Amino acid sequence: MAELFIVGVDGSDGARRAAAFAAKRARCVGAKVLLLGVIEWSRYAFYTPEELETRGRDKQRATERAEREVLRPLAESLQGEGLEVSCLVRHGHAAEVIQALAEERGASEVFVGREGRSPFVGALFGSVTHRIVSTSNVPVTVVP
């Protein structure tokens, strides 16, 4: 069975570099690459009745947009030379979702960019990358 590399993708340059690095390594060892986009989504947030009415549709639209605008174009740019690349969108807290999926799928390694879409917010509230590195049971490669 081929190894599985999971790449956390958020549309940033850092995530694109992480995906390219993971693809290069995957070609060397015959691993599969799974591009994982995580849409921050809390089931514990408070919503108005009007927001609750559209919540399901909003979630579906966000999923479709992430696949169409971020994941599929990145996957297409990486494919070739026999590399198997797949895409998945999940909802929740990014670090938790990435870790859970890595364990669930038996991933051999997780790749993330050093900086995501907003390094300023990460510095204030704790970085997803830092949390993954600090708590993961799967080896993590951080790509600058």
Rank of each mutant, 00 (worst) to 15 (best):
residue 64 E to L: 06
residue 26 A to K: 08
residue 37 G to H: 15
residue 136 S to K: 14
residue 38 V to F: 08
residue 51 E to A: 10
residue 103 E to K: 12
residue 102 A to F: 07
residue 122 G to H: 09
residue 106 G to V: 07
residue 122 G to M: 03
residue 64 E to R: 10
residue 62 A to K: 04
residue 121 V to N: 14
residue 49 P to A: 10
residue 139 P to D: 04
residue 90 R to H: 02
residue 138 V to T: 15
residue 67 E to S: 00
residue 136 S to P: 14
residue 128 V to S: 02
residue 77 S to A: 05
residue 76 E to P: 02
residue 106 G to K: 11
residue 31 A to D: 04
residue 27 R to Q: 09
residue 84 E to W: 02
residue 93 H to E: 15
residue 119 P to A: 14
residue 35 L to I: 06
residue 129 T to P: 06
residue 72 R to W: 14
residue 99 Q to G: 08
residue 30 G to H: 14
residue 91 H to V: 05
residue 76 E to I: 04
residue 100 A to K: 15
residue 44 Y to C: 02
residue 96 E to T: 11
residue 18 A to R: 02
residue 108 S to Q: 12
residue 40 E to P: 04
residue 26 A to W: 12
residue 89 V to C: 07
residue 60 Q to Y: 05
residue 119 P to Q: 10
residue 119 P to M: 14
residue 118 S to G: 11
residue 77 S to M: 06
residue 117 R to E: 06
residue 91 H to C: 05
residue 9 V to G: 03
residue 66 A to Y: 07
residue 52 L to K: 07
residue 67 E to R: 07
residue 67 E to M: 15
residue 142 V to W: 02
residue 111 F to Q: 03
residue 110 V to W: 01
residue 19 A to M: 08
residue 73 P to H: 01
residue 25 R to H: 05
residue 144 P to A: 11
residue 84 E to H: 09
residue 108 S to D: 04
residue 103 E to G: 15
residue 111 F to T: 01
residue 60 Q to E: 11
residue 89 V to K: 04
residue 23 A to N: 02
residue 31 A to C: 15
residue 105 R to D: 06
residue 4 L to T: 05
residue 68 R to T: 06
residue 97 V to I: 15
residue 106 G to N: 10
residue 101 L to P: 10
residue 105 R to Y: 06
residue 81 E to W: 13
residue 24 K to C: 09
residue 135 T to C: 01
residue 46 F to H: 03
residue 95 A to F: 12
residue 71 L to P: 00
